[in-house]
Design a protein around this nucleic acid. Structure first.
Lengths: 252, 252
DNA sequence: CGGCGTTTTGACAGGCTTCAAGGGCCGTGG
DNA sequence: CCACGGCCCTTGAAGCCTGTCAAAACGCCG
């Protein structure tokens, strides 16, 4: 079912040495939990940019945690319209829906070279019955995903184009920043204006014009892959409230 | 924190006699589970139409299951713009976010006289550690909520006003119908056109005109509280794919 | 150098919002 | 019993925000 250049990978990062564990925003595993997660992670998967690895309507045998890279979750309409639901960054879980319910209701595509931890769904129940703290963490992750979707819904439903653009950019900057991907207020954004447009429910042309308008305020700079936050206050003023980053959040 | 006419209720429906358990679309509890849920439900709460019982920014001591009535989850912007995120019907859980995370990111308001089962959040961990099947059910419920939000996001982001209206109405008709609230293709909708507008990200005026246009196709009839589905095929054609109702779904 | 994906710009059309006002229904109170 | 007020639904007119169409400029890579 995997198109593009996706392939299992011989060398797996052992969980003890997981680079994510060093992030201050993520909670620590107990030794017991670490032991289980290590066994739970059966493989690593690499996906090339532009390739989807989970499909709407299919039932996946695995769920995944993003180890490195960016991806996005999306849905398509019959006539080709696309809605991007959210972006996935390291420490995010993808495919939980397919693991818990009958089938996936959205697809997931890599934006950059992507490394995923592969977790077999048939052992999810083992996790629930033996590691309630981890089960709780998974629920926490699902609730956080829901929260981001809700914010997104407010943006698309009730905010103007300028407000929407300000909101996503600030949102994504914050998320990337929290993961240590920012240096001097600059992060690398791997997506195009078309991706932004599809996330925001706008046309490409109007997204472009709105971005220009936003850059004219000197709140941000964005050329090539470099995104620079010049004036957080101004951006915040346009975007409205952006949820504070969660401290000590779980991940699996 | 509860405004309006909300009050605890002396007489509680015992879980053995819960009317929801008779619904064919919901899964059966084992005796063990039933025993626990019975203890988990510490009270019943009644809320009057128009009253909110969960607030954005607050941290609730309880989570709730809807026993009778309709509610809706929503978020407000500073200047009064409102976005309705989803509607809650019997067997739906509300307030999970507040129970799992730091605080609620949305509010919940009753549309009709509402009866809620009160579940204390501080015993949620007991559930996770002793009843993994129920913990799994909660995750399932969170995943389903996420799925509905995603569909909603596609509507608002990529569908025209006519398509959006067709979609929600079909969606809500299906959900109500599944719960046995339909008779001869008629259900009672307790919300106004203003609610619909706020759910769909449209203005009231345009929602009204779009509804008129939809009724002109003879796909639906909606006057007073009565909503009648006249031609499911036509509505489906406008709405695009609407997810099939889930069989044997969990609830708590 | 040529080709392709991305960004940019301009012109125009149209869907949706806003403003404004009237009508219907119902509960309340004189 | 009727008048009144409030809420909801309905309709018209005007204008803006956003979409669509079209084309050119840019940057990157083979």
């Amino acid at each position: 079912m995997i198109l593009g250049n996706a392939k299992p990978n011989g060398e797996i990062t052992p969980c003890e040495q997981c680079p994510l564990r060093r992030l201050p925003c993520l909670r620590e595993f107990t030794l017991n939990e670490l032991e289980f997660v290590k066994r739970f992670k059966v493989d690593e998967l690499r996906v090339e940019p532009g390739a989807s690895f989970l499909y709407e309507g299919s039932r996946s045998e695995h769920l995944y945690t993003v180890l490195r890279g960016w991806a996005f979750r999306y849905k398509m309409l019959d006539d080709g319209r696309r809605q991007i639901l959210n972006f996935a960054l390291p420490a995010d879980m993808v495919g939980l829906q397919g693991a818990v319910m009958e089938e996936m209701e959205h697809s997931v595509e890599a934006l950059t070279p992507l490394t995923l931890c592969v977790l077999p769904r048939h052992r999810l129940y083992e996790l629930y019955s033996q590691y309630p703290t981890l089960a709780f963490d998974i629920t926490w992750l699902a609730a956080r995903e829901e929260q981001m979707l809700e914010e997104h819904l407010v943006s698309i439903g009730r905010r103007s184009a300028l407000e929407r653009v300000a909101y996503v950019l600030l949102h994504l900057y914050n998320r990337a920043s929290e993961l240590g991907m920012a240096r001097n207020n600059v992060v690398q954004f791997p997506f195009t204006q078309q991706h932004l447009a599809d996330a925001l429910g706008l046309s490409l042309v109007h997204t472009n014009k709105t971005l220009k308008r936003l850059m004219a305020t000197k709140a941000i700079r964005w050329q090539g892959r470099d995104f620079e936050l010049l004036d957080k206050g101004v951006l915040h003023g346009l975007a409205g409230t952006v949820p504070a980053p969660q401290k000590n959040r779980p991940f699996i």
